[in-house]
Design a protein around this nucleic acid. Structure first.
Lengths: 228, 228
DNA sequence: TATATCATACGATACTTATCGAAGTATGGA
DNA sequence: TCCATACTTCGATAAGTATCGTATGATATA
């Protein structure tokens, strides 16, 4: 019997349709209630509770009690990244309806990955920031240049406050639909929340889909030179 | 129900201990017989046959009949890379014995990944080749410089013959133990076979372990300036 | 205080599947 | 021709587990 990393522990958790659906729903990095996740996976609350207990036990998910509700969230950004990697090497989903097809296109266009932006928009913005010399890629991280510090200040981002957060500051996050990297970490999160604050982007309820507003179109044009 | 890539299809295949062991054994890229794989996974031949049929059906493994033997191999290099990625994000194996511990160290030191070299030695050699300017990393591939062409020629590698092969020439392959990239593809395979041919490395039967010979030590010293 | 809602615990059930014995097929050698 | 070997197919079995009905505990609202 040969030695190999314990690959079955993690894969067994993902090999079940209901659990995979729950985890996919949690990929937005937000808290969700058990019944909400049960509805999404089209199973009864008891079954969802059963699965969630397993996910918590294996440190993929954490829970927080609030009154009679219990909120579930992915344990950390690393879990989200791991799941994105799994998705990037899995075969693409079967598209059954026209509705699904357009939904998938919008997902590829712009979506959340844990707590920051992902998809084509995120990759494009990351590329522009590299080309403009605001950030530089180094191994699996991005480094902010002096030029970049000005840029983010102008955009209304408080880099010092972000750097105080207890997490990787701006690592390169693998994008499963675009098969390349986008900006993650605290800066990725800060940028995303700023876009929302500015009204450039709007997130939809119970979906990772992100919509670019009219203000967003002119905003991205002005700051990034991006025509959408 | 939300849309997400079909993650369960692949993970379900890896979630089973016997199949995971079989796949790990096939990671050397060589052909193995069904009974050999059954022995490695400590299951009866019928059970191995059952699992191998599933793996072939899902295009992870291909088989070739030769007389009364049937040989199994990983379908292609992409499968091997995918498995390495899964291993890199899985928790490390439980070490039960001293024997296992030293075996694991040797595996981390030097092993085969499909049909080329992996582990610390491979990563070190790849780094040296980059530092010496023989190859340059570009996205997920390496590019051979003019200086590099000379080097590989001197080493006895026929680059033209290798480039004719129907596979990626020299892509960056993720190394699960070193958490960085090493040289894969046709060139990675060509280098590995040349090391064997020169007697620098020896591969062990039924294991991915690779042993560096005395000739190898002086060879790597002479050509790469590497002291082992 | 009574009631509705949310979540979990327990037990029963049905389904999946890994495993192996027995039998069958194909091949090579004596 | 007979037998040994390598592998597969089939059927039975046992183990694991996803699911849900019912019941219970906790909490908010009326």
């Amino acid at each position: 019997m040969s030695i190999h990393p314990n690959i079955t522990a993690l894969t067994a958790l993902l090999a079940e349709k209901s659990r995979a659906t729950i985890l996919a729903a949690l990929m937005d990095g937000k808290f969700h209630t058990a019944s909400e996740l049960a509805y999404m996976a089209t199973i009864k609350p008891q079954t969802a509770s059963f699965h969630l207990a397993k996910l918590v036990e294996n440190n993929l998910v954490i829970s927080e009690k609030n009154g009679r509700f219990r909120y579930f969230r992915l344990a950390n950004e690393e879990v989200a990244n791991t799941l994105e990697i799994f998705m990037s090497i899995s075969p693409p989903p079967e598209v059954r309806s026209l509705k699904q097809s357009s939904q998938l296109k919008r997902l590829e266009n712009a979506r959340t990955c844990y707590d920051h932006l992902a998809g084509r928009l995120s990759v494009t913005l990351t590329n522009i920031m590299q080309e403009e010399g605001y950030i530089e890629k180094s191994n699996k991280r991005f480094i902010i240049t002096t030029k970049g510090e000005h840029f983010f200040k102008e955009l209304g981002i408080d880099l010092i406050a972000l750097s105080r957060k207890r997490r990787s500051f701006c690592h390169a996050c693998l994008d499963w639909s675009e098969r390349t990297h986008h900006l993650g970490g605290a800066l990725g999160n800060g940028l995303f929340e700023r876009y929302i604050e500015l009204g450039w982007l709007e997130s939809r309820e119970n979906s990772r889909e992100i919509v670019i507003t009219t203000e967003g179109k002119s905003g991205f044009k002005e700051f990034f030179g991006l025509s959408i």
